[in-house]
Nucleic acid binder design. Structure first.
Lengths: 262, 262
DNA sequence: TCTTGATCCTGACCCAGCGTCAGGATTGAC
DNA sequence: GTCAATCCTGACGCTGGGTCAGGATCAAGA
């Protein structure tokens, strides 16, 4: 049995234009009459069934072409890859939905002073920052510490410390003022991490990873940090710590600690 | 502060080409220098933040333009609509994923005689049929009965009855042979529905809805039914039932039943 | 056999959201 | 003034077709 386009379209539920398109892109090439009219066979009907099925699980026409040309033994692998990409797409949608949900929740209780659009922007930007930081931490360290911590980074307390350090960048790292600033910073840091030693190490490691990759951070995050002269502040704290250890004869301990955590 | 495209692009994380595109479509129109170079302001920066946020929750550029022009009071409504459309998209993806999962499960145990592609096609087509039938039944009736029933419709038992009826279409509806065929059909039907009278009525109603709308069924389903001369079979069974009731003096009961179920 | 209406052909332009050249014009630092 | 960096516009590409438009072909009736 063979069909002309119109009949074949009605038969398969695909439009004539789509069939012509499939023909043009080489996905389904029927035979032709002498004058050029398309003639579809039963085999074409099977092929179009497969095309529709693959399309309905989200494959592009190009990929469908590849799949139909692939060895049947490779199909399971292809399908599971497709499933993975569908799941990825779903998580993307889920994130968008969660963003909107959060907005709706806040809307109920909170002040409306920042506009909804501003709050949406802030949520989205924060989300982006979190996403980019997560990669640097172990899964455990991120869940227990990083997520909550970076959500409102830098916190007011950190801001205060940073501002004070910036005003003191040029003083002697061994001076009392410098040591006091160092102590404030380490105290804040200790308070944030807690006392679980495994977690402490994981966090230190993750933070180190993140810091070392700071020039690959996304713009938004770099801008957040650009509010302060972080490079200089980091250097200052490093120098102050060195001075402190030197003062207390703990250089050896520090070195060991470095090795362990690295 | 004002920026040129390149700087603004670096600042916002949007490419220059995208900014030019937004300009062309009227979404973000910066001011221009005399010679035509784009100059972006702080206000533009806010606007691009909003654009990015809205884009990240899945809105089209056109819609973003409308949203940015809309009254702030309408935003909650807009956002919840967006959420709804995201959820719809997600269910579509979920269905595709489930299709692939089912395929993977079958793959483990079953025979590989029909190719994976054929099985995928069958699954997808069945899914389409189920989707189209579901609308005709009450939610309850569908869950308890229709879903499982239509999954492999027509079953071998029904096929056998239909074939026998087709061979007997011209005989007298009141004849013993016709009455026997009617009894076989009603027995099958009763066995399928069970004895819950509420459910029985719901199913009867849903089936009636579906049958009355049979010329609006999707092709695939019509083709499934086209295997048999269903119209003639339906008529035959109707006539046989009429004859049966007439024979037993139950016409009144039948009429009442019709009213009740319609 | 001729006509007529239905069907079929191709090519061009349309949608979104940009990316990717290409060919010129401007800018800004030295 | 020069030269590189930056900017401009326009054209074409991508996906999966939809929507005309203008012609050719097919099938059936007169």
């Amino acid at each position: 049995m063979h069909y002309r386009v119109g009949d074949f379209a009605a038969l398969t539920g695909v439009t004539v234009r789509a069939l012509q398109h499939y023909d043009r892109v080489g996905l389904l090439k029927p035979s032709r009459t002498e004058s050029g009219h398309r003639i579809y066979s039963e085999a074409d009907r099977q092929r179009v069934r497969h095309i529709l099925a693959l399309r309905s699980v989200g494959m592009s026409l190009q990929r469908i072409g590849e799949v139909l040309a692939a060895a049947p033994a490779r199909l399971p692998e292809i399908f599971s890859a497709q499933r993975a990409s569908l799941e990825e797409a779903r998580t993307g949608i889920d994130e968008a939905i969660r963003t909107l949900e959060r907005l709706a929740i806040e809307e109920d209780d909170a002040s409306n002073t920042p506009s909804l659009l501003d709050r949406l922007s802030a949520t989205v930007e924060m989300h982006g920052v979190l996403e980019s930081m997560r990669g640097y931490f172990s899964e455990d360290a991120w869940k227990k510490w990083g997520e909550g911590y970076f959500t409102d980074w830098p916190s007011p307390a950190w801001r205060a410390v940073f501002r004070d350090i910036e005003a003191a960048l040029d003083i002697d790292p061994a001076s009392d003022r410098a040591q006091e600033l160092l102590k404030r910073a380490t105290t804040l840091w200790d308070a944030a991490i807690g006392s679980d030693s495994v977690l402490r190490r994981a966090v230190r490691e993750g933070y180190g990873n993140a810091w070392n990759a700071r020039d690959r951070w996304p713009r938004e995050l770099q801008r957040r940090y650009a509010e302060f002269r972080v490079e200089a502040i980091g250097k200052f704290l490093g120098n102050a710590a060195m001075a402190s250890w030197r003062r207390n004869g703990l250089i050896h301990t520090y070195t060991t600690g470095q090795r362990t955590s690295a």
